[in-house]
Write a protein that binds this DNA or RNA. Structure first.
Length: 594
RNA sequence: GGUGGCAUAGCUCAGCUGGAUAGAGCACCUGCCUUCUAAGCAGGCGGUCCUAGGUUCGAAUCCUAGUGCCAUCACCA
């Protein structure tokens, strides 16, 4: 039983015995730093049941608790706050309990129900950028957090592999590519294809300018530029299954997938299953038909199909065009259904998609519910804010994107530069050093992005870039490395820190640390229910702050006696483990040295 | 215009179900490396918690209205 549960019981008993009143709930909060105590009972809410002076009530309850509970060693009352001092023994016991638990904080997957987490969903006409990085990190981390909270999880992505955008790149390659390939140019496949997307847009803009110069209205020009018409023609050929077009589409998409794979690998994210829009839109169309029969949808005279959501306060939404072709919504309906077909144990899905699509997902979930799928009750849109640059929004067409690969390389180089200045890596081989620079550089980037609340937008300043000091990934990694260093040193001093030792009292800093360790399991659960890696980041940061303070103020290997040395190394070790687990949930690696 | 999100220190952000004097980091200023890794620690400076009402013993937190920024309201994805 947790300390809070024990206290809750006893406080209720105290109120019953002393005041003969029934208390529905007891309100707790951690005692503020400026006051003595560990846990605080808030007396004010009791005034509804117990008449009297809050200070006096607090004192009487405090006296009762101290007399009846060994866990409560002392108390004080300030205004309506009853501050309880919890006995060292309680924390000592607690630490003993968790000390040797492997995977402390994680809950084993108990339920047969599973969650599918979708993230990334890239288009196949251009490379991944900073926006995708936020998406990927968030999705990956939430998936890991859900796993740790006891859920069975599948990670997936939907690849937007069809549509006009990819035809633009294809067309430009056909025209100006002179048979270039990733092999012949040494370029990553996604970069090569992205270049042709840019090339397409350049020609397109030129053609528009020419047509406008000849006196054409700009709006018409943007619709009738010859290169655009040609791209549209290509899309039609693709949909008709034209062999030449389809094989070019396969070839170029293949290049892009190879490129993405490299980026995902560097970023450290992975997927259990991939979905392609080209595979699921037909299923969507089937269910539109079914929805029509069930009267969930209605058909207009021109043949287009709609879902009327005005009763729910939303609009009428199109689910099939008048020419019978699929829209975005059709595909998403099909994809969702396909997923549950593939994994019948799915009882929920998480869609990691930017907040500009809040409306789309509201509608999608509502439609799936109307179609009568039980799992539709368990859908969640993990909506996140955009990553903006100081110059404003990122636009791939205007070349103002921060490329994912470049950014990761830059971060790694920065880590290398800082590390070289500090020069602490004596004895490391060049490979080991390079691996470390990557761990630190990516750690900085990932933490920087994940520590902010997903729903808030991020302003990313490439000039100032990402910090390596203060509330940052490297700061936390550094603390981890420091703990590993202590353990190595302990071993070399022959301190047998794996042996059990008995403590009877602990330092206040140790008490604080054990308290924080105790909060780790709740932190994971809270992060899971809120779909928020930021809560894990904040927790780990608090723990690390406290540890560093302990480290500077309390001797570990220079402690007075061996038992104390062993105990403090054990505590440090456990904190290292929790840091590593927490960072694992964020997809961030921890180094042995740095 | 309708709908949704956000607004806290010069900057970037925490602040859980309402609770005590609103917290960190960066930046700026002071100290601390012959002792366990100074990517660290200790301290200082810095706030009309967007505004106005309301609910409450108590509001940054809840409610209402307003202001500002962003998104969305396509037979684009």
């Amino acid at each position: 039983m947790s300390i809070q549960a024990i206290l809750e019981n006893q406080v209720k008993q105290a109120v019953l015995k002393i005041f003969n009143a029934e208390l529905p709930v007891v309100e707790f909060q951690p005692t503020r730093r400026d006051f003595e105590g560990d846990i605080t009972v808030v007396v004010f809410p009791m005034l509804r049941v117990v008449k009297g002076n809050p200070v006096q009530i607090g004192n009487e309850i405090g006296t009762y608790l101290k007399a009846n509970l060994t866990e409560v060693s002392d108390f004080n009352v300030v205004k309506g706050f009853l501050n309880l001092v919890i006995a060292d023994a309680f924390y000592i016991d607690f630490f003993n309990e968790i000390k040797d638990k492997t995977d402390y904080g994680r809950v084993d997957a108990a339920s047969e129900k599973s969650v599918m987490v979708e993230y990334s969903s890239p288009n196949t006409n251009k490379p991944l950028h900073l926006g995708h990085i936020r998406n990927n990190l968030l999705g990956y981390s939430v998936a890991e957090i859900l796993k740790a909270s006891g859920k069975n999880v599948y990670k997936t992505q939907i690849i937007n592999d069809r549509g006009i955008h990819i035809c633009k790149s294809m067309l430009a390659w056909q025209r100006f590519g002179s048979d270039e390939t990733p092999e012949s140019t040494g370029l990553k496949g996604d970069k090569l294809v992205g270049n042709y997307y840019v090339a397409f847009n350049n020609v397109y803009q030129e053609e528009i300018a020419e047509m406008v110069a000849k006196g054409m209205d700009e709006k018409i020009a943007t619709k009738e530029a010859p290169i655009l018409l040609e791209a549209q023609e290509m899309l039609q050929k693709w949909e008709a299954g034209d062999e030449k077009v389809v094989s070019l589409w396969r070839k170029m998409n293949g290049w892009v997938y190879d490129g993405f794979e490299v980026t995902y690998k560097n970023l450290g994210v992975d997927f259990d299953k991939l979905y392609y829009e080209s595979d699921t839109y037909l299923l969507g169309k089937e269910f539109v038909k079914e929805g029509l029969e069930k009267k969930v949808f209605e058909e207009d005279p021109d043949g287009s199909v709609w879902c009327d959501l005005t009763d729910e306060g939303l609009d009428r939404k199109i689910v099939l065009r008048s020419d019978g072709t699929a829209v975005y919504m059709t595909q998403d309906i099909g994809t969702a259904i396909q997923r549950v077909k593939d994994y019948p144990d799915i009882n929920g899905m998480v869609y990691t998609v930017g907040n500009e699509q809040d409306y789309h997902f509201k509608v999608l979930f509502l439609i799936l519910k109307k179609l009568g799928f039980s799992w539709a009750e368990q859908l969640h849109h993990l909506s996140y804010g955009m990553v903006d640059l100081p110059s404003g929004k990122m636009k791939s067409r205007e070349g103002t994107v921060v490329d994912a690969d470049d950014l990761m390389t830059d971060m790694t180089l920065t880590a290398e530069k800082i590390s070289k200045e500090l020069g602490k890596l004596e004895g490391y081989t060049e490979e080991e050093k390079q691996a470390l620079y990557k761990i630190v550089g990516l750690g900085a980037l990932k933490y920087y992005i994940l520590k902010v609340d997903p729903k808030k937008r991020i302003l990313f300043n490439p000039e100032e870039s990402v910090d390596f000091q203060g509330n940052t990934g490297p700061f936390i990694q550094y603390t981890y490395a420091r703990i590993q260093s202590i353990k190595r040193k302990a071993d070399s001093m022959n301190v047998k820190w794996k042996q059990a030792v008995v403590q009877t009292s602990i330092h206040p800093k140790e008490k604080e640390l054990i308290k924080l360790l105790g909060q780790f399991p709740e932190a994971i659960q809270l992060a899971a229910t809120n779909y928020s890696p930021a809560l894990i980041a904040n927790y780990v940061y608090d723990l690390v702050k406290e540890f560093n303070s302990f480290y500077q103020q309390v001797p570990i290997l220079a402690a007075d006696n061996d038992a104390l040395k062993v105990y403090r190394v054990q505590l440090s070790h456990k904190i290292g483990e929790v840091i590593a687990t927490g960072f694992e949930l964020l997809g961030i690696a921890v180094p042995q040295r740095m």
